[in-house]
Design a binder for these strands. Structure first.
Lengths: 210, 210
DNA sequence: AAATATATTAGACCACCCGTCTATAAAAAT
DNA sequence: ATTTTTATAGACGGGTGGTCTAATATATTT
């Protein structure tokens, strides 16, 4: 087996060689998919490499270990997600509570596009945190906190615009949102439809103190 | 290495031989611990066997495959949990909403006792359902439904006792409880304390329609 | 008591995985 | 042109995973 269909290239390629010149970024992107679908422990490095056609030898040139790779992937996801949050939650063309709905709508589309196989990387890794390198736990906690603050700010805007009660504890409400949100995403993955996300949003908005 | 400290027994042992005579039940118990802590994909059969001192060869005598074993473990957990729910939610010495609080209190104690390493088997497996044998998905969905019905009944009692509004959709409220609950358990595992569970209960009870 | 059936075990087997290593080669620097 | 740096190719080793076959000790039957 293993017929050499194409003479394998060896050695350093020209700087602009593979269709995508940035091998490291490609690995992170592929790892993001893989980790989001399979988690960290069950994700093989070989598989991640195969998807982008990068040989194993390269991996340990770019990353010192699987752990370091995982941290990088998580950071990459965190940045991506924070961007998405900012896009939705700071969009002043909608009232604050509507922005939360927009975020959920966006998430619904995203989950459906991937056939409910991905969910949330941070939530997934949080579930298996006891199997992960120790450094991951605080990293994940911090990411949740950053999401919480962003949402809390949006809720505070809702307060100042009179959408919710001025006595509400926005940080606590925001924390509650993300705690429940991970449950809703997990359930959506299980039943393979967006109902849990819709229901969750409705219930959350209705439950806010007026 | 591997000194033969004790002559290894072979062949069929007397019917009442090991300290615990029911090897199969022991395997299920050990598997329950293992699967709850590590999930299914990352749980090795070897480890499960080692914990109860059963040799590897025996495993496939008692179970036809890892998948069949997993199904048995899940069923065992479901029975255990349904018992716990009935104990709490049918206890007429407390008003219905208080019973829910009792369940949460029980869960808090349980999670702390295991250093927040276990969480909920059904929730954990739900997260990794895409890595699991196909048969698991419906099994998990059905278990959530059974929990939902039990809680819905409790909420209906709360209705008839005037604790919550008679117009409430108890099934929907119950579904919402379990969706969010899994998020709260997951977060409690991550931060390694019971705050998320307490907060979740508070928020849920306060959010019920009066 | 001998033969058969059954329950249980030992350990081989193969596939896979992570991390490392050496050899190789293109590009850049001298 | 020679050397140095950057990147790739792919084998290797130790370990683990699920599964299966052969072996063996007890129970049951004859």
């Amino acid at each position: 087996m293993n017929l050499p269909v194409s003479k394998p290239r060896r050695g350093r390629p020209p700087k602009v060689s593979r269709e995508n010149q940035d091998t490291k970024a490609e690995l992170i992107r592929s790892g993001l998919e893989q980790l989001t679908e399979k988690g960290f422990a069950s994700s093989g490095i070989d598989q991640i490499l195969k998807k982008v056609g990068v040989p194993k030898g390269s991996f340990y040139h770019y990353f010192s270990s699987k752990e370091a790779f995982g941290q990088t992937v998580i950071q990459s996801y965190a940045r991506y997600f924070e961007n998405k949050l900012d896009t939705c939650l700071l969009d002043e063309s909608y009232p604050p509570l509507t922005r939360i709905g927009n975020f959920v709508e966006d998430a619904k589309i995203g989950m459906a596009r991937h056939q409910f196989k991905r969910g949330c990387l941070v939530g997934n890794l949080g579930q298996e945190v006891d199997l992960l390198p120790l450094s991951f736990r605080q990293q994940l906690i911090d990411i949740f906190l950053s999401w919480q603050h962003r949402l809390a700010n949006c809720l505070k805007e809702a307060q100042s615009q009179g959408e919710i009660s001025t006595t509400a504890d926005c940080e606590l409400l925001a924390e509650h949102f993300w705690v429940g949100w991970e449950g809703a995403v997990s359930r959506a993955k299980l039943v393979q439809n967006t109902k849990p996300l819709e229901n969750y949003l409705n219930h959350y908005i209705l439950g806010l103190p007026r």
